[in-house]
């Protein structure tokens, strides 16, 4: 199923509250600085552009267990305070996008299902 489903996010009304980050961290049992989705800020000094855009990371598995075994929506979609996220088949998400064009659709694929995580801790000099 993964790959055919995705996340639709309405950029016009995402407030950058980071609830998606926290919900995901709890759901995937990630550490305090690990992310399954991360919010980016786009603030330009053009008097026009101020957006927050959540982007799933390589860890996102679209809450496979939660969705398929518990019958719930993904944790980020469920907890999003601005209620700007939808989960479903990509074809149906396109319909949301047609209705609300200032939006994005992500089709995350959990990297661990394709290739292994690499151990970066060997590079100790990376930490100051």
């Amino acid at each position: 199923m993964t790959g055919k489903n995705g996340l639709w996010i309405d950029i016009e009304f995402c407030t950058g509250c980071m609830a998606c980050e926290a919900a995901c961290r709890q759901e995937l049992d990630l550490g305090p600085t690990e992310y399954g989705i991360k919010v980016f800020e786009q603030l330009l000094n053009d008097g026009q552009t101020f957006n927050y855009v959540p982007i799933p990371t390589d860890r996102c598995n679209l809450c496979a267990t939660r969705v398929h075994e518990e019958g719930k929506r993904p944790a980020c979609v469920h907890h999003c305070m601005a209620q700007v996220m939808e989960y479903g088949p990509l074809e149906s998400l396109i319909e949301h996008m047609k209705r609300r064009p200032r939006s994005v659709i992500w089709s995350p694929v959990s990297r661990s299902s394709q290739r292994p995580y690499h151990d970066l801790e060997q590079f100790e000099f990376l930490e100051e």
């Binding site: 509250c17 980071m18 609830a19 980050e21 926290a22 919900a23 961290r25 709890q26 469920h78 907890h79 999003c80 305070m81 209620q83």
Partner: peptide
């Protein structure tokens, strides 16, 4: 082990902030 917003609660309708989720 976990906190989850109640989907049909009239106040937050399932949603929660990062502080509650932590």
């Amino acid at each position: 082990v976990k906190i989850e917003g109640i989907a049909d609660h009239p106040y937050n309708r399932g949603t929660l902030c990062p502080r509650a989720l932590a």
